[in-house]
Design a protein around this nucleic acid. Sequence first.
DNA 1: GTTGAAAGACTTTAATT
DNA 2: AATTAAAGTCTTTCAAC
Lengths: 153, 153
Amino acid sequence: MNLHFVQLLDSADRSIVEALAADARLSLKELAARAGLSSPSCSERLRRLEERGVLAGYSAEVALEALGYPLQAIVRVRPLPGMLHIVEKLIQETPEITECDKVTGDDCFICRMAVRGMGDLDRILDKISEKSQTNTSLVKSTPVKRRLPPFVG
Amino acid sequence: MNLHFVQLLDSADRSIVEALAADARLSLKELAARAGLSSPSCSERLRRLEERGVLAGYSAEVALEALGYPLQAIVRVRPLPGMLHIVEKLIQETPEITECDKVTGDDCFICRMAVRGMGDLDRILDKISEKSQTNTSLVKSTPVKRRLPPFVG
DNA sequence: GTTGAAAGACTTTAATT
DNA sequence: AATTAAAGTCTTTCAAC
């Protein structure tokens, strides 16, 4: 996997990436049509985009309510002195945490969490708060759903 | 689309959802094998999961570096009095903002942003800061990559 | 709601430019 | 690297349980 991405994408590659970002289950035939290619050449480009790591995977967007998780929260976590690694491990082992970034600034981690209710939230935050300062925001709505930034030449 | 999700998922549905969350491009045949079903019945279940909104879409995970965006930031945004709607609109119209949640607490919005470099970041934050207080954290690493919370009965 | 078989659609391979 | 054609595979339909 080329991690430097020395060359950006040509127009056909961009079509493929954009189309799969919007619908990862599109058929090769449909992808090829959108990129203006035949199916075999589209298949080969797709293979190389995956090999280069440009396309890192494909995932279903799941309605968390349907899994029994009606609430989401964003939690900023600032480990107490000496607790950084322990807190990082705790975060990774908390399955309700669905995403976590390590960031610059006063907060060390910013996590997204899905919970079944306030009981869940309380229990998980109590646990994390034993070893860090936390600041929690409940998600009320999502004005921008996951999307790609503009393609640049 | 049933927004109440009155019934949770049975074991075959869970297998389908879990498998597609991990690899949205799996074939029906492979999905059916994992769920212990025939292809036609798996196809019908998939159709209904989509119809109910349990599966809300499928997307490719794209390496943003490959698109020319080597940096990501998380920005907390607190609109100045009276600026809430203007700021929300500005966020939605800033294409480098790849995700944004509206949340409870002192911050009104928490955004994820992809940028080509510090110049980009500076320009975008200056614009948003005309109408809000912002607090920005640069992403250094991602200890937890997007995953589903545990399935519950 | 599920199965099995057949028709149809898609993907891959291989030869060619 | 891309295309065409053919072989192989997968998906969908439909009759039956």
